[in-house]
């Protein structure tokens, strides 16, 4: 092997391997979806998910809207009977 071939095999190939791995890492885990990290803030809007209704009449949306207006009222009727709390 000539000097050029030796350098290409022993330096060029490993460098190429590192480059491919680096490209895969930074292209794949580029963080397209925001990831939650405990301790950092949460800057997203408040969201409320409800299950899809079986019938298409969909009373849930109206219920939520009326709930929003009652929240701003003086004192909403208490409906909670139990549950649990947790921190992390």
């Amino acid at each position: 092997m000539s000097v050029v071939q030796t350098v290409l095999v022993y330096v060029g190939l490993p460098a190429l391997g590192f480059a491919v791995i680096a490209v895969l890492v930074y292209a794949g885990g580029g963080g397209r979806s925001p990831r939650y990290r405990p301790g950092r803030g949460w800057s997203h809007d408040d969201v409320w998910y409800v299950p899809r209704p079986l019938r298409s009449s969909g009373p849930t949306h109206r219920a939520l809207e009326s709930g929003g207006s009652s929240r701003s009222g003086p004192g909403p009727r208490r409906t909670a009977r139990g549950g649990a709390s947790g921190t992390w």
């Binding site: 009326s66 709930g67 929240r71 208490r78 409906t79 909670a80």
Partner: peptide, 15 residues
């Protein structure tokens, strides 16, 4: 938080 969560629950109305 507990009070707010209970208020949210009350906001579900008839459900």
């Amino acid at each position: 938080p507990r009070r707010n969560a209970e208020d949210l629950h009350a906001g579900l109305g008839g459900a």
